[in-house]
Design a protein around this nucleic acid. Structure first.
Lengths: 221, 221
DNA sequence: AAATTGTATACTGTCGACAATCGACAATGG
DNA sequence: CCATTGTCGATTGTCGACAGTATACAATTT
């Protein structure tokens, strides 16, 4: 009765390295050697290569032909670039979700919302972020655009990477941000597309400003 | 003195298959067998596998673990999904381009514009599309957001695939669309971000409607 | 000493072979 | 006759080996 994860090797490797990059254990600019990873994980280079392609799709590594893989940089500029796209795409998600969410979607959204609220009260940053991603996931599902969903999910690791840096500075912000989510859920329920879109965009700009403040605040490290 | 293309194998394969999918020589839903491609192209399966990952990034094939690759479907829904994203992201490109384009950018943009205008007059659809993509490329460069650029370029093959279907129906439309591009160029030059953005979004909605009309017009085929 | 060339070596790119898995169809039992 | 299980062929997943290329460093020249 073995419950061996029947996930394939490349995905396991990807998750592992992904996490290391997000947690900044693998530093920006650092080289990733196929053979080294392969040996560390006890597999051959083939699955490692596929894993690197996936990480490239997630913008966590940069693949240069015949030169190998490097962990991507993440400067203030990168953060700006990311959030500008974030704003546009989640704005779209929000608007469409308001148009198309059904009762089931709304139920899940409220569940995610209360998770966020409780986490904010407790000051549990980890659970707070879990809740946010859950909320976002329901939103994407409600928007009924799988291509958009896929595109955003590929950016998800970048998002987590950016947020990770500001995790410990966040505790005070949580309560303020909860308000955004309440508004979003409410507007979506009422089908107010334009309003949610603006709410989400405002949230994105807010997040961007916060992430930039942190990034600039610690030039060292 | 051999002028062998020193591009790597995977890219050559990718271009080849990419073109076949766009031209509908490989049909939606059709399976792509690694071994078959490998033999046809006289290479081993390794480069073919990498090529398939790239095609997946471009949304031209779908990769299902242990089941292989299939050419993605492209229904009216897919077209809607695509253009909704197109509208949001190119809207962003346009706005940022208006903020950031320099004299050099504007020069290149005008060159692309006159290429488009001439092609429209001649009714040369191929050159028209070349011009459009050139215009879009300058726009993306001007927007100074490499992440956005990368994201959009990954969607580029999908764009071409959708357009390909309507290529032959387009001749009349060209002149009308040229007006859009004139406006865009002009607004960008004047730095009118909000105006270009709206112009681009209108253009996207226009394209979407056209592509949908074609797609619905020929349920057969 | 600075610039250039040569050379070793550490990688990535590609290959062919083998293992694991899936799907279809046949065999078996109810 | 239907459902279940077994088997086979086709196809993907993984591997280790070798080929080819970039990089760092030493040797050579100016």
């Amino acid at each position: 009765m073995s419950f061996i994860a029947r996930d394939n090797l490349p995905e396991i490797l990807t998750r592992d390295i992904c996490e290391k990059i997000i947690r900044n254990e693998l530093k920006p600019g650092e080289r990733i050697l196929e053979a080294k990873i392969a040996e560390e994980m006890g597999v051959s280079r083939s699955p490692v290569r596929e894993c690197l392609r996936m990480l490239e799709k997630n913008r966590l590594v940069e693949l240069i032909p015949r030169k190998g893989a490097r962990v991507t940089e993440i400067t203030a500029q990168h953060i700006e670039w990311f959030y500008d796209i974030f704003e546009a795409l989640y704005g779209l998600v929000a608007r469409k979700a308001a148009e198309r969410a059904d009762a089931d979607d709304l139920g899940q959204m409220k569940a995610a919302l209360s998770k966020i609220e409780q986490a904010a009260v407790k000051g549990d940053v980890q659970e707070y972020y879990d809740g946010i991603f859950e909320f976002a996931e329901v939103g994407m599902k409600s928007a009924r655009n799988p291509l958009l969903e896929q595109t955003l999910k590929e950016l998800w690791p970048s998002n987590r990477r950016i947020q990770y840096a500001s995790l410990m500075f966040r505790t005070d912000e949580l309560r303020r941000n909860v308000i955004f989510f309440r508004h979003m859920a409410s507007y979506i329920e009422q089908g107010l597309g334009a309003k949610v879109e603006e709410e989400v965009r405002a949230y994105a700009r807010n997040e961007k400003a916060f992430a930039l403040k942190i990034a600039n605040g610690k030039k060292k490290d």
